[in-house]
Design a protein around this nucleic acid. Structure first.
Length: 878
RNA sequence: GCGGGCGUGGCGGAAUGGUAGACGCAUGGGCCUUAAAAGCCCCCGUCCUCAGGGAUGUACGGGUUCGAGUCCCGUCGCCCGCACCA
């Protein structure tokens, strides 16, 4: 692991150390305060809740996506857990019983990479990382209940997961099917998509091949209709995430059409195609199948050119993005199919690299005039483009398709019996005709595929199955679980260490007792993260779930994590929950009632002229943002908005930040910088600004604390009114901002409030105490340590802010007695007027019209219309 | 390529269809200090100005409205996901 980098802090922000040095003004000493308050929370078990909510207060389950233990925490974690902690502390103050646990998504590839590269055992590497990261998280002052912690690589967790797998098997939700993997022919290893770079294996550099393997699948497609329909019930999910999921599930109505082959090939009499546009069948120009389609294989047998083309397509790997971005290419098989409607006509069968075997039937009919991809393909290979849809207002004699297909609705023509019909009627009529002829049927197709969970890797949860020659695949009996990973594994050979372990896989068949073989594949790590949120409700139970605990706490009220998980992790978790609900193990069909997706954390990156990436402490940044290399003095290319990454060396270590500024400063800066759902940029000046504000608040209280009247004093009327109004309006505004995840706005309101307190120096002492106590309590979800420190100065010995209820604004004190109205003429601002609350409309118009600027803008023209939006605006139309 | 999102001063951003730029950061000027640090105060979209104001401005081009950063259509740029990274 890389040594921690020094951080280029200005010397003035180092921890001030012991105070009461007469020569320097007193400062807030976060370095001693933060651990002190963390101990105080621990000592009182502030964040502990029972396994079953006791009903004394409403329950609230706050969960952030648990981290992968990669080594150290990064700023993305700090942002994620700060957001969650604000919610957890705020909800707790609002009187909820808050469950807020933490654990580790601990299986995965990086541990195996570390084992191969450095000879560390994956378990040792993982648990060491967990220890480091746990210590770092604890320093952040999060209101977590650490007693519930677990790692998914603990046998006590993955053993329970194996039990769930047996339940899924029993429920008919598991299947064994063949599917394609990326195969590295040199390393003899299955590659993850991220390990395929430009079609080559990342270590060997060899062109990847696609290989078919028999693998385990969860039947998520059985739940496709439910998963789609239930999106509507998720009213506290971002619309964009629901949209992405709906598109991913991809329900589409269309038809399956059977095209008879002119001459049967290798036992194939026909090709079946799925289409959402059966109305355009008369616009057919060709038929195309995927390279993995059986017909393609049959055609390749007699033709080496076709075989070469298929091999080329295979070399693209299994990533859909790579396949679809490749240049659209194809090859004519020489086969021809008959048309279901056009008597005697036949069309060529092509193999095309953009047709996906996984979608529909792995074959399409090409209608170039109505589909852009088909058109590009037809133009490239000189195939005909018969137009069949006439856009509204076009003349059939002159309308022609050029470089752009017409994909919208219109009137069918050149289409035999469909002529004159619109798009919707055309679809219906075409399906009716197909069904009457026995050439096809109307169907609903789903884009969603079953979830392949087999991985040929060591560091994952063993799939508890035994393969027996006589009995087939036999589940490991529940009383023989968990199937644990062997510890003595050899990573010097490529491939799956479980597979070449000398003893582990050799077992007796549980059914017949004959020699049999353990499944050596392990689960996709998405399985681990598909139920951990439920396990947190009873993390040590001897069964996967405990009904009262799970049903008492679930669903998660607020789930927080990165937008990059918008589809897969969230959809798999929804599927798992629904499946467990169906088996009667969970009371809720949906895992996450509320979802918030945060943006990424970025930092400027610096590239020297010779192409090396420079770390932030290796450059001098000038006021105008330009930078030079400290070592060479040469100018450096600065790029903002770069995702923090080790390769660009622009990561900032949260541990170093906490050392130098304290956890509260880091939290405050992260919250203040921008709205939490957007990407944020970590800047040095931003953190130091946040640090100054913590000192300013502390000073504000420290300077005032001695001169305040005792708690309970009643503020006087009159002079104190302005400050009291500021206090109660701030309570109102911060509360609203916290409720709506506008944490940056909450920060702004607290800044304004601090300004107001400073300006109100001569005010009534009781009002001042009220204001300062409000500050301490309002910042507490965001800067919990500073809040405790301020509170202890204001109310020595009065207990913890963490145990206080949230402040309520007094409505009467928030009202103003006059308001400012904008006066516009023709929608342009010309003046503002100050009127007492409750002024009637006629008076408002008269006052507005009397303004000198307004008169000038009206310029003697008659007023046609007067608009008054009470409390906002007056507009004169002339 | 397909699906989703975002775009407002030098920077991060604020703004129930109703005063665009709150609040913060940076820069500049000033106070304090022997000096620095810390702290405090002022200015701060652009252009014009008779110093009252005026024009213009929310990626770009259109539209709806008394009124558009906000709603609608199109274009451009950037970001996320694409099923074996987590």
């Amino acid at each position: 692991m890389a040594a921690p980098r020094p951080y280029p802090f200005p010397p003035e922000y180092r921890s001030p150390g012991p105070m009461n040095d007469a020569a320097t003004p007193a400062r807030y000493d976060f370095a001693s305060a933060e651990p002190r308050w963390q101990q105080a929370w621990d000592a009182q078990d502030c964040f502990k809740v029972p396994d079953v909510p006791d009903g004394s207060r409403p329950k609230y389950y706050v969960l952030e996506m648990f981290p992968y233990p990669s080594g150290k925490i990064h700023m993305g974690h700090v942002r994620n857990y700060t957001l969650g902690d604000v919610v957890a502390r705020y909800k707790r103050a609002r009187g909820h019983q808050v469950l807020h646990p933490m654990g580790w998504d601990a299986f995965g590839l990086p541990a195996e990479n570390a084992a191969r590269e450095r000879g560390v055992h994956p378990a040792a590497w993982t648990y060491q990382n967990i220890a480091t990261m746990r210590a770092e998280l604890k320093r952040m002052g999060l209101s977590l209940e650490w007693d519930r912690e677990f790692a998914t690589c603990d046998p006590s967790y993955y053993g329970q997961q194996q039990k769930l797998f047996l339940d899924f098997l029993q429920a008919g939700l598991v299947e064994r099917k063949e599917s394609w993997v990326n195969w590295d022919p040199v390393d003899h290893t299955v590659l993850a998509n991220e390990q395929v770079i430009d079609g080559r294996g990342w270590r060997s550099g060899a062109p990847v091949e696609k290989k078919k393997l028999s693998q385990w699948f969860f039947s998520i497609t059985k739940y496709a209709p439910e998963l789609l329909a239930a999106l509507e019930t998720l009213d506290r999910w971002p619309e964009r995430v629901k949209l992405m999921q709906a598109n991913w599930i991809g329900r589409s109505e269309g038809a399956r059409v059977r095209f008879p082959l002119a001459t049967p090939v290798a036992g194939h009499e026909s090709v079946e195609v799925f289409t959402t546009r059966p109305d355009t069948l008369f616009g057919m120009s060709f038929l195309a199948v995927a390279a993995e389609h059986p017909l393609a294989a049959a055609a390749a047998e007699a033709n080496p050119e076709i075989a070469a083309f298929i091999a080329e397509v295979r070399a693209l790997g299994t990533s859909e993005a790579a396949i679809e971005q490749a240049e659209k290419r194809g090859i004519d098989t020489g086969l021809r199919v008959a048309h279901p409607f056009i008597e005697g006509a036949t069309f060529p069968v092509w193999i095309a690299n953009f047709v996906l075997m996984e979608y529909g039937t792995g074959a399409i009919f090409g209608c170039p005039s109505g589909d852009q991809r088909d058109l590009d393909f037809a133009r490239k290979y000189g195939l005909p483009v018969p137009p069949v849809i006439l856009p509204p207002g076009e003349d059939p004699a002159s309308f022609a398709i050029g470089r752009t297909a017409y994909t919208d609705e219109g009137t069918l023509y050149n289409s035999g019996f469909l002529d004159g019909l619109g798009t919707a009627e055309g679809k219906r009529a075409a399906i009716d005709a197909l069904e009457a002829k026995g050439a096809g049927t109307g169907v609903v197709n789903w884009r969603l595929r079953d979830w392949g969970v087999s991985r040929q890797r060591y560091w994952g949860c063993p799939i508890p199955v035994i393969h027996c020659e006589a009995c087939g695949t036999v589940p490991v009996p529940a009383d023989q679980l968990p199937v644990t990973l062997p510890e003595d594994v050899d990573f010097s050979k490529p491939g799956n260490p479980l597979d070449h372990h000398p003893a582990w896989k050799h077992v007796a068949c549980p059914q017949c007792g004959a020699a049999a073989r353990r499944e050596t594949d392990t689960f996709d790590t998405f399985v681990d993260s598909s139920w951990y949120f439920a396990r947190f409700t009873a993390p040590k139970a001897a069964t996967p779930l405990v009904a009262e605990a799970a049903n008492g706490w679930l669903p998660v009220d607020q789930y927080i994590g990165g937008i990059e998980h918008a589809i897969l992790h969230l959809l798999y978790s929804r599927f798992f929950t629904r499946a467990l609900h169906g088996m009667g193990q969970l009371g809720t069909p949906e895992p996450f009632a509320g979802l918030f997706t945060q943006g990424m954390v970025q930092h400027a990156s610096y590239k020297a002229q010779d192409g090396r990436w420079l770390a932030p402490d290796e450059v001098d940044v000038a006021a105008d943002g330009s930078a030079t290399d400290k070592a060479t003095g040469l100018a450096v290319t600065v790029s903002r908005n770069d995702k923090m990454s080790k390769s660009k060396r622009n990561t900032i270590d949260p541990g170093a930040i906490i050392d130098h500024y304290g956890a509260d400063t880091a939290r405050w800066f992260i919250l203040s910088d921008n709205p939490p759902d957007r990407d944020m940029e970590w800047t040095e000046s931003g953190v130091s600004g946040a640090s100054r504000f913590t000192q300013r608040l502390w000073r504000l209280v420290n300077n005032a604390a001695d001169g305040l009247p005792p708690p309970g004093a009643v503020p006087a009327e009159g002079a104190a009114r302005a400050l009291r109004r500021a206090t109660h309006r701030t309570i109102q505004a911060v509360t609203e901002a916290l409720e709506s995840f506008s944490f940056n706005v909450a920060v702004a309101r607290i800044h304004e409030f601090a300004n107001a307190i400073e300006q109100g120096a001569a005010e009534d002492g009781a009002a001042r105490r009220e204001a300062l106590e409000a500050v301490a309590r309002l910042v507490s979800p965001m800067m919990p340590h500073l809040a405790e420190e301020l509170w202890s100065m204001l109310r020595p010995g009065a207990g913890l802010v963490a145990n206080l209820p949230w402040l309520e604004a007094e409505e009467a004190l928030t009202r103003a007695d006059s308001l400012t109205l904008a006066v516009q003429v023709l929608g342009k601002l010309r003046a503002t007027i100050e009127v007492p609350v409750g002024t009637d409309e006629a008076t408002v118009f008269a006052l507005a019209e009397a303004e000198e600027n307004v008169q000038r803008a009206i310029a003697g023209r008659p007023i046609r219309k007067r608009i008054h939006v009470p409390g906002r605006i007056v507009n004169f139309v002339v």
